[in-house]
Computed example of a mutant assay.
Amino acid sequence: MSTRTDAPTRREQILKEAARLFAERGFHGVGVDEIGAAVGISGPGLYRHFPGKDAMLAELLVGISGRLLDGGRRRVAEADGVPEQVLSSLIDGHIDFALDDRPLITLHDRELDRLRDSDRKLVRQLQRQYVELWVDVVRKLHPETGEGQVRAAVHAVFGLLNSTPHLGSYGNGLPGRAAMEDLLRKLANGAFASLS
């Protein structure tokens, strides 16, 4: 989801590989030596960047929740309050996340309960704020629809978009990224259009 063009830092490389490995084999199925090997450093060398696997998991899950919220707020501001543009931009941003950060979706689904209470509460708080961005714009587009129904529709669209880890790899019958992006956009817009 990042728009940066510079090379990732060592810390970012570690987090990316940790997310991939945790998603593939589970948090307890991966050791620091494996994460280190994936980025070309010794397992103990990871401790220069993180105090341990728990800290990596917390940074991954809190970090993605914060990035989604920050990106959503930026998209709302850039669309100048035009609800159709805001919703379109929010959908595009979440599709980018769903297609580009699939291991983080898997990780969230499987490992959120492994976080310390304070980190888990922070993730939930950030997620609630992100949901509220969407609910606000969808209510502006569908003022005749009750808040509960709008909220349910937002969560249903998240479920739809966040199902991408279950699709497998591109190829093998799965459309390429551009076609998948287009399909997800149509499905999300169709879901919200059904509120009318």
Score class of each variant (00 low, 15 high):
S2M: 14
T3R: 14
T5D: 11
L15C: 02
E17K: 09
R20T: 00
F27P: 01
G29K: 13
G31D: 10
G31E: 07
V32R: 15
E34F: 01
A37H: 11
A38S: 08
V39A: 07
I41W: 04
P44Y: 10
R48L: 15
H49C: 02
G52S: 15
A55S: 14
L57C: 07
V62I: 15
V62G: 11
R67E: 10
G71R: 06
G71Y: 07
G72P: 04
G72A: 12
R75F: 03
A77W: 09
E78V: 11
A79P: 01
D80T: 08
G81D: 03
V86A: 06
L87P: 00
D92S: 06
H94L: 03
A98T: 07
R102Y: 14
I105S: 06
E111S: 14
D113W: 03
R114N: 15
R114V: 12
S118R: 15
S118W: 11
D119A: 09
Q125D: 05
L126A: 12
Q129M: 12
R139H: 10
H142W: 03
P143W: 10
T145S: 02
A152K: 13
G159S: 10
L167E: 05
L167F: 06
N172G: 12
G173F: 08
L174S: 00
P175R: 02
L183P: 00
A188H: 04
A188P: 02
F192D: 05
